[in-house]
C-alpha cells in the first residue's frame, strides 16, 4: 500500500494554502505537524478526494484517486477536523448509517459497531444523541466511524482534539496497534501525540513541507540548539525577554531553571541539553511559542 502525494498545490484566491507538497506515504503512523494555518487540513482534504488540487496529483498504488473513485473510497477512512453529523442521530444510529454507506453488510456492521463502541468506551453513550455529547465523546464517535470499514488508508485531522489525557494515551496505543498494515496519517499541533508512535513525521509551514523524518532524525536537527541554565527568580522577566524559552521550572533558593533555544549558549553557566521533538517544533515555529502547548 502506498499513497503518493505528488507536488500538490492548492490556492484560495491569492493565498497558497499548500505549496508543491510531495510525500510517499507507506504503512505505519505518519504525523503531520504544523502550526495553525500551515495547510494540514487542506492537504488532507485533497488526499480524501473532497477537494481537487490546483496542481499535482494524489495516487494510490500509482493510480490517481480521481480515477479510482469508489475503489479508493472503499479502503479509505476519514475524520475531518470539524466533525459534522445529523443532529437527530444517536451514536449507534450514526454508526449504522455510516456502515451502510461504507457498504458493510448488516451482520458485519453489527459486529464491527459493537467492537468499536467497546474499544472507544462508547457503550454507555451508544443510545445518546450525538448533539448532546461532550466534545471528547463526539470525537471518539468520529474516530470509530472512520474505522468502520477497516480502512487501508486512514486520515484523521486532529483526532486528539478534545480528548482527555487518559483517552489520548489509549488512542495512541490503539493507533500504533492498528497501523501495522495500513497507512495512518494524523495531523496535530500537539507534539506528544505523534512523538512516540509515528514512524515518520512531516512538518508543514506556510503550505510547504519543511522537514520529514523519524522522530530521532528530526530531533537531530535541534541538536546543539537546546540549553539549560539557572537564573535568580528576580531576573526572570529580563531573561524571558532575551531568550527563546521552551520551559521553566522553579528550583530551590529562589532560582529558576530555564530551557531555551538558541544557536549558541547565551549565559555563562548554560549547558547543552538533549533535544526533544517539541524543541524542534518550537525551533521551527518560533512565533507560535505562545500558542503551542
Amino acid at each position: 500500500m502506498e499513497l503518493t502525494i505528488d507536488s500538490v498545490t492548492k490556492r484560495f484566491k491569492e493565498k497558497v494554502a499548500v505549496k508543491e507538497v510531495s510525500l510517499e506515504i507507506t504503512p505505519g503512523v505518519w504525523g503531520l505537524l504544523g502550526a495553525n494555518g500551515a495547510g494540514k487540513t487542506t492537504l488532507m482534504r485533497m488526499a480524501a478526494g473532497i477537494m481537487k488540487p490546483d496542481g499535482g496529483q494524489i495516487r494510490c498504488e500509482g493510480i490517481p484517486i480521481n480515477v479510482l473513485k469508489e475503489k479508493y473510497r472503499e479502503i479509505f477512512g476519514y475524520l475531518p477536523q470539524e466533525f459534522g453529523f445529523y443532529p437527530e442521530f444517536t451514536a449507534i444510529d450514526y454508526l449504522e448509517y455510516m456502515a451502510g454507506l461504507k457498504g458493510l453488510t448488516r451482520r458485519a456492521a453489527k459486529v464491527k459497531i459493537e467492537e468499536l463502541l467497546e474499544r472507544f468506551s462508547l457503550t454507555q453513550a451508544a443510545k445518546m444523541k450525538i448533539s448532546k455529547m461532550s466534545g471528547g465523546t463526539k470525537r471518539r464517535v468520529g474516530i470509530a466511524q472512520a474505522l468502520l470499514n477497516d480502512p487501508k488508508i486512514l486520515i484523521m485531522d486532529e483526532p486528539t482534539g478534545g480528548l482527555d489525557p487518559g483517552e489520548r494515551v489509549r488512542f495512541r496505543n490503539l493507533l500504533s496497534e492498528a497501523s501495522r498494515d495500513r497507512i495512518v496519517l494524523i495531523s496535530t499541533h500537539i507534539v506528544s501525540d505523534v512523538e512516540y508512535i509515528a514512524s515518520r513525521i512531516a512538518v508543514m509551514k506556510q503550505g510547504s513541507l519543511i522537514a520529514l523524518g523519524s522522530t530521532p532524525e528530526l530531533v537531530q536537527m535541534a541538536r546543539g540548539k537546546v540549553y539549560t541554565c539557572l537564573v535568580p527568580q528576580d531576573k526572570l522577566a529580563e531573561y524571558e525577554r532575551k531568550l527563546n524559552i521552551v520551559n521553566l521550572r522553579n528550583e530551590q533558593e529562589g532560582k529558576v531553571s530555564l530551557r531555551y533555544l538558541s544557536q549558541s549558549p547565551l549565559t555563562e553557566d548554560s549547558q547543552a541539553d538533549e533535544p526533544r521533538l517539541e524543541d524542534l517544533y518550537l525551533y521551527l515555529f518560533p512565533n507560535e511559542t505562545k500558542e503551542a502547548e
Binding site: R45, A48, G49, I50, E70, R73, E74, F76, G77, Y78, L79, P80, E82, F83, G84, F85, Y86, P87, M98, G100, L101, K102, G103, G142, Q145, N149
Partner: peptide, 21 residues
C-alpha cells in the same frame, strides 16, 4: 444540511456517499 453541518465531508469519503446517496 449536509453542507451546513459538515457531515458532507465524511459522507463524501464513503463508498456509496456520492451518487448512490
Amino acid at each position: 444540511s449536509n453542507y451546513q453541518t459538515g457531515a458532507d465531508d465524511i459522507l463524501r469519503c464513503t463508498k456509496h456517499g456520492r451518487v448512490r446517496l
